[in-house]
Nucleic acid binder design. Structure first.
Lengths: 161, 161
DNA sequence: TCTATTGCGGATATTTAGCATCCGAATTAT
DNA sequence: ATAATTCGGATGCTAAATATCCGCAATAGA
C-alpha cells in the first residue's frame, strides 16, 4: 500500500498557495519549478485539486491557481481526497460469499468483522487528517522557520510573478 | 492508494485458523479453496505470514499452516505488516530540499509539518488495527452468526482434513 | 485583432502490482 | 525405502495504476 507522490506534491503546493497574499494566481509550471517536479504531472494534480474545489483556476496570462477558500478550511484530507479519490484503501471483496461454504447474500447485509475493523481504522486515519488544516501547517512552520528564510522564499516568488 | 486484496485474504485465512482446534494444520490449497481464491497467490501470502512469524508452517503430509500464537495475540496490524510490509503509505521525498529555494540538509533534521501530520494519521490507523485481534473478531462473529451456520462450516472442513 | 500565456482533457508510454506456473526441498505415512 | 504431500523460491505473463506528452480552448494584455 502506497500513497502516490502526487499527494505530497499537492500538499506542498497548497501550502505555498496558502502562504501567498490573497488574489495572486500561480501557474502549475511555477509550482512545479519551485520544488523541481515534473511540470506535466504537477499540472495533472492541480487539475484534480481544481475539480475537487480545493483550488480555483484561471486561464490565460496572469492566471493560474489559488486557494478556493481560507487556509483554515482546507485540510490534508481534502487534498488526499482530491488527488487519490475518496475510495477507501481497504475494499472488501466479499469472499465470504464465495467458495463451497459461501454465505448467502441475505446473511451479508452488514459488513463482516474484518471489513468493519478496517473501515474503523481508516476512519481514524481520515479524522486525523481532517484535523490538520493548511493554516495550522503554516502556523507550525512559522514557529520553526527563521523569518530570514521566509523572506528569502517570498522574494524568489516575487521575481517570478 | 489501495490495499492489496492479499490482506483481506490473509485476514480471513487467519480467522479460519483461529477458529480451528489447536494443533490442526491447514494447507494453503485448502485455505484458497474455502473462499474460492487463486491457490498459487494464496500460497504466496501464507508464506509471507510465515516469514513474519504470524503463522507456522509444516511440510509434508498432514502439514500446513497454523497460528504461531494465541488468537488474542494476533492483531490485524500484524497481518497487514506481514503481507504489505511495514513501510508507511506516505513516504516523504523531501521535495523541500529541491528546486531554486531548496532547504539545506541541516534545516531538515526534523520532518516537515506535512510529513509529520501524515505520520501521525498513520499512527492512528495502525493503533486502530492493533486494537483488533483475531480473538475479538471471532467473539464478534459468534455473537452474530447462527450456531447452525458455524456447525456447517466446521463440518465441511472436517471432510477435508 | 493578434499574440503570449495558461488550464483542460484525451492519448500514450512506463512502471508496478496481481496472478499463474514450475520445480526443488522437506516431511510424513505406509 | 518409497511415495504422497506440502512448503518455498524463482520465473514469466497480464492487467492496472502511474507518469508523461500533446493539441485545443480560453483569457488577458498589447
Amino acid at each position: 500500500m502506497r500513497m502516490s507522490d502526487g499527494v505530497e506534491w499537492a500538499a506542498h503546493a497548497c501550502a505555498l498557495l496558502a502562504a501567498l497574499p490573497e488574489g495572486v494566481g500561480v501557474s502549475a509550471a511555477l509550482l512545479a519549478e519551485f520544488n523541481d517536479l515534473p511540470p506535466a504531472y504537477m499540472a495533472k494534480h492541480m487539475q484534480a485539486l481544481a475539480r475537487a474545489g480545493v483550488v480555483t483556476s484561471a486561464r490565460g496570462a496572469g492566471g493560474g491557481y489559488r486557494l478556493a477558500r481560507p487556509a483554515s478550511e482546507v485540510t490534508l484530507w481534502d487534498i488526499v481526497e482530491a488527488v487519490e479519490g475518496p475510495e477507501p484503501a481497504f475494499r472488501c471483496t466479499e469472499i465470504r460469499q464465495k467458495g463451497p461454504c459461501a454465505a448467502k447474500p441475505a446473511e451479508c447485509r452488514h459488513p463482516c468483522q474484518i471489513a468493519a475493523a478496517f473501515h474503523a481504522a481508516e476512519k481514524a486515519w481520515r479524522g486525523s487528517l481532517k484535523a490538520v488544516s493548511l493554516a495550522s501547517i503554516l502556523a507550525d512552520l512559522a514557529r520553526k522557520q527563521s523569518p530570514a528564510r521566509r523572506a528569502e522564499l517570498l522574494a524568489w516568488l516575487e521575481t517570478k510573478l
